[in-house]
């Protein structure tokens, strides 16, 4: 039997997977290495162009190319750590300086990607801007391959990260480094190695997300400008704290944006699509004003206790102040 998945379901979920890869990356970079990475969305664009190169020039399929996205993106992350983050860290740069440095990195990477797109167009006579890779996708029982692949790969990686951070020595050491690097070093933890691993993940995860992007949406070197607001909004909603909150934030923001705008476009017309970024912006502003520490900072225990007391009919006196 063939199931047909409506675009209203598949597009938001694929987009949520892509954005969540990026929110995890930004949260990891901030919590484990204390670097606010403003170039996170451009790491996704690097993934787009690795995938594009693999398919169009090397003749590799869409999904096998994701391995190269992961490795290539990770390699870029490590190089950036060695050339930019490590020297800045060594001289004791402030968080604001790190922010500006990653902004500079973002501008530099976008210019490089543009040069690379020019190079592809000139030397290989292929359209390296405003392209989609939809034709390379497959269908399984009426469901788009990208929906199945992005969701399964996303959850596979998410579960792997959960296991790494909660069950392995490396994950626990990374937590320790994130909280107090000096103390972690005193305990004999090789912080340098952990920073490299973190930056590998910070580069690899958005690059995988980027690999899925051109299947549904038109891609070009400056596409990061259009998704960065959604990524930041997801991170702020999550609270820039743990990967779980980052995923939840990414999913909530993206689903709200895509579903709400899709619904509104039926209601008021297609012009509303140009303003779709206002949804994540609004979520970001509401989050900052109502619960500035995001989902992570919510008093979950007290909320659960209150719900329990309401369900059981007992009087609750714990208060519920955020």
């Amino acid at each position: 039997m063939e199931i047909s998945l409506p675009p209203l379901l598949s597009h938001p979920v694929v987009y949520a997977n892509i954005i969540s890869f990026m929110t995890i990356s930004a949260t990891l970079a901030l919590t484990k290495t204390r670097v606010p990475n403003f170039a996170v969305a451009t790491f996704g664009t690097i993934g787009i162009y690795i995938s594009f190169t693999c398919i169009k020039i090397l003749g590799i399929g869409l999904y096998p190319s994701l391995i190269f996205c992961f490795l290539g993106g990770g390699a870029v992350g490590v190089i950036i750590y060695w050339l930019l983050i490590k020297p800045l860290r060594r001289r004791g740069a402030t968080r604001e300086e790190m922010m500006i440095a990653t902004l500079g990195l973002d501008i530099f990477l976008i210019a490089l990607l543009n040069i690379y797109a020019d190079f592809l167009t000139r030397n290989f006579k292929i359209m390296a801007r405003d392209f989609t890779l939809e034709v390379y996708d497959f269908k399984a029982g009426g469901v788009d391959g990208v929906f199945i692949a992005s969701t399964s790969i996303f959850f596979l990686i998410f579960i792997s990260l959960h296991l790494i951070f909660s069950k392995t020595n490396i994950g626990i050491a990374m937590k320790a480094v994130g909280e107090n690097p000096s103390l972690a070093e005193c305990e004999g933890i090789d912080t340098e190695k952990l920073y490299v691993i973190t930056w590998f993940l910070a580069g690899a995860l958005p690059a995988i997300g980027g690999g899925f992007f051109p299947v549904y949406w038109i891609a070009n070197p400056t596409i990061s400008y259009f998704i960065i607001v959604t990524v930041f909004s997801g991170c702020v909603l999550g609270g820039f704290a743990t990967i779980y909150d980052a995923v939840l934030g990414g999913y909530v923001v993206t689903l709200a944006q895509t579903i709400l705008v899709s619904y509104l476009s039926d209601l008021v017309g297609l012009w509303i699509l140009s303003y779709s970024f206002l949804v994540p912006l609004l979520i970001m502003i509401i989050t900052i004003f109502l619960f500035p520490h995001g989902i992570y900072g919510l008093p979950w225990n007290r909320m659960i206790n209150k719900i329990r007391s309401v369900v059981s009919g007992e009087e609750y006196s714990g208060g519920l102040r955020w």
């Binding site: 930019l84 500079g104 501008i107 530099f108 210019a111 543009n114 020019d118």
Partner: peptide
């Protein structure tokens, strides 16, 4: 070897990073 259109981004990006590393 590339279009001068992208020179501005390359220069700005490199300058920001280099200044912050070597002459903050």
């Amino acid at each position: 070897p590339f279009s001068p259109l992208w020179l501005e981004g390359i220069l700005l990006g490199i300058l920001l990073m280099v200044i912050l590393i070597y002459r903050p």
